[in-house]
Amino acid sequence: MPFATADDGVALHYQLHGSGEPLVLIAGQSNNHHWWDPVRDDFAARFTVVVLDHRGTGESDRPDTDTYSTPGFARDVLAVLDHAGIGCAHVYGTSMGGRVAQWLAADHPDRVDRLVLGCTSPGGPHGVERGPEVRRALTQADPDAVRRALLTLMYTPAWLAGQELTAPGREFHTLGDPTMPGYARRRHLRASARHDAWDALPRIKAPTLVVHGTDDVFNPAANAPLLAGRIPDARTLLVPGARHAYFEEFADAATEPVLDFLGQSSLP
C-alpha cells in the first residue's frame, strides 16, 4: 500500500492500476478513491490509473488543521505523482476533484498533458451555485433524509428504482467516506466552497474536455459553458438526462468519449 508524503508531512494513500500512459482520477468532496470504483477498470484497461485518498479520507492522514484547500489538494496530487515517479499525466477530476484539477493544470502545466473536468465549477462569484432547496435538503437533521437527498442529486429516479438501496453491503461510493471524522468533512466543505479559479483558468495549457450532466442541480450544468469559455480551446460534452454522478450511471455515454479524448495524447 504506497503512501506519498505531502509538503506538510501528511501521509497520502494512493493506488496504481493497469498499464499505459498515466491517468490521475481525482474524487469529489469528502470522498476517497472508491469514488471511481464503478469505472476505474474501464480506464485501467488503457492507462496506468492513479487513484488517491484526499487528506481527511480513506487511508490518508486526517489532520485537524487549516491545511484543506483546492490548491492544497492539487499539491497533494503532485506529491503522489512525485512518489510514483510520474512526471506528466492526464488528469480527470470530477466535482471537487475537478476544482482540484483546475489548479493542478493552471499552476503546474508541465505535469498535465490532457485534462478532463467533470460536473464541476470555476467557483467564486462567477460560478453558478446550487439552489437554496438543495442546500436545505443537505442540512436536514435526519441523516437518512440527507442520504436520500444525496441519492436523488447523484442519480436519476429511474436508475435508483432498479437498485436495491437497502440491500446488505450495497454501497454508493459517491455519498461520502463514512469513516471521515466530522471535522474533516467540515474542512472539505469549506475548501470546496472557497474555491475560485476564475483568474487562473486562462493559464491552462492542456487540451481540456468539460463534461457535465444536463440535469445536474447539485453542481448546476450552467457551470460547464463557463469553464469551457474560460479555458483556451476547451471542448464540452453534455450528457443528456444525467445528474451529478453521470460518470457512473451514464458510463455508457460518458466513458468512451473521455477515453477517445485522452487517447489523443502527446505523451511519449
Score class of each variant (00 low, 15 high):
120 T>Q: 03
60 S>W: 00
48 T>L: 11
220 P>D: 08
242 A>Y: 02
53 D>V: 13
71 P>H: 12
108 H>Q: 13
198 W>P: 02
88 C>S: 09
215 D>E: 15
264 Q>E: 13
64 D>P: 07
5 T>Q: 03
254 A>Q: 03
201 L>M: 12
176 G>F: 02
258 V>N: 03
252 D>F: 07
141 A>Q: 10
24 V>L: 11
12 L>V: 03
9 G>A: 13
170 R>E: 10
256 E>F: 05
150 L>Y: 04
182 G>S: 14
133 E>C: 05
50 V>G: 01
27 A>P: 03
240 P>G: 10
169 G>C: 11
200 A>R: 12
218 F>C: 10
111 R>M: 02
179 T>F: 01
81 L>M: 15
92 Y>D: 05
133 E>K: 11
2 P>F: 10
159 W>D: 01
127 G>C: 04
165 L>H: 09
59 E>S: 09
128 V>W: 04
185 R>H: 03
14 Y>G: 00
16 L>T: 07
192 S>D: 12
235 R>C: 07
248 E>Y: 08
43 F>N: 03
247 F>P: 03
66 D>T: 15
184 A>M: 02
240 P>S: 12
268 P>D: 15
42 D>E: 15
242 A>R: 00
36 W>L: 09
198 W>K: 00
183 Y>I: 13
215 D>I: 09
118 G>T: 01
48 T>E: 14
221 A>C: 14
102 Q>R: 02
59 E>P: 00
116 V>K: 03
128 V>E: 02
265 S>M: 08
80 V>P: 04
264 Q>L: 15
91 V>W: 03
35 W>A: 03
257 P>N: 10
241 G>W: 09
223 N>L: 08
123 G>I: 06
163 Q>S: 04
169 G>V: 10
227 L>T: 00
239 V>W: 07
102 Q>Y: 07
5 T>D: 01
42 D>P: 00
180 M>C: 10
132 P>T: 09
266 S>G: 15
52 L>F: 04
68 Y>A: 05
229 G>I: 15
92 Y>M: 13
134 V>D: 07
264 Q>H: 14
128 V>R: 09
157 P>I: 14
164 E>N: 09
15 Q>Y: 02
186 R>Q: 14
176 G>Y: 02
67 T>G: 04
124 G>I: 13
150 L>G: 05
186 R>M: 12
121 S>C: 04
227 L>K: 07
14 Y>C: 10
56 G>F: 06
254 A>R: 05
215 D>C: 06
80 V>L: 05
61 D>M: 06
5 T>M: 05
234 A>L: 08
245 A>D: 14
115 L>P: 01
186 R>L: 13
222 A>W: 06
174 T>L: 08
211 V>T: 04
144 D>Q: 14
248 E>W: 14
9 G>S: 11
57 T>M: 05
206 A>E: 08
211 V>E: 10
3 F>G: 01
39 V>N: 09
25 L>E: 06
115 L>Q: 06
50 V>T: 10
237 L>P: 08
64 D>A: 12
51 V>I: 13
258 V>P: 01
47 F>Y: 15
70 T>G: 07
172 F>T: 01
201 L>A: 09
4 A>P: 04
158 A>R: 14
224 A>M: 08
159 W>M: 05
205 K>R: 15
156 T>S: 15
82 D>V: 06
200 A>F: 01
93 G>C: 02
44 A>D: 08
